[in-house]
Simulated scan of single mutants.
Amino acid sequence: MSDKDEGRRLLHIGAVAERTGLSLRTLRHYDEIGLVNPSERTEGGFRLYSDAEVERILLIRRMKPLDFTLEQMRELLDITHDVAQPDAPIEARQKLREIEAIAIERRTALENKVAMADEFLSRLQDLSSPRQDGVKPETGL
């Protein structure tokens, strides 16, 4: 780390991967496509990430289960940067609300899928458990 970095902590890509639960390959891909670029590189070429970049990566990770595309992720990262500014454009706040509505809708769909999966697992457990009264359970799944 150089003198200019003394007040700021930079993490190697391996530490970022561990902290975010993403693979090195995924982090390298995000860098290659310009989604999240490391702050610096070491003399040996290793990627170094600031806490702000790690937060961006965590935001992306949180979007993945909701099936946002890489382009939508890029758009949200830009919007979150814009709305953090004191003179944030109204359009950015409106777009953020639109993305929030999409996220809520997709989360609800995921909840419904989990509920169906739980019902299915419960049914399988009922079928695989021997009954004490000797009667075979009905076989309809």
Rank of each mutant, 00 (worst) to 15 (best):
H12E: 08
G14W: 02
A15Y: 01
E18M: 14
G21S: 12
L22H: 14
R25E: 15
L27G: 09
L27P: 05
R28K: 08
H29I: 14
Y30F: 01
D31S: 00
L35G: 04
V36M: 05
V36D: 00
N37G: 02
P38G: 07
S39G: 05
G44V: 07
G45A: 07
S50R: 07
S50D: 07
E53V: 14
V54C: 12
E55L: 05
E55R: 06
E55I: 01
R56M: 13
R56L: 12
L59Q: 08
T69H: 04
L70K: 14
Q72M: 03
Q72F: 02
R74K: 11
E75T: 12
E75M: 07
E75Y: 08
D78Q: 02
H81V: 02
D82G: 00
D82A: 10
D82I: 00
Q85A: 06
P86A: 10
E98V: 09
I102H: 02
I102Q: 04
A103L: 11
R107F: 08
T108L: 10
A109W: 01
E111Q: 03
N112F: 01
M116T: 15
E119S: 12
R123F: 03
D126S: 13
D126P: 05
L127N: 12
L127V: 12
S128N: 08
S128Y: 07
V135Y: 04
L141T: 06
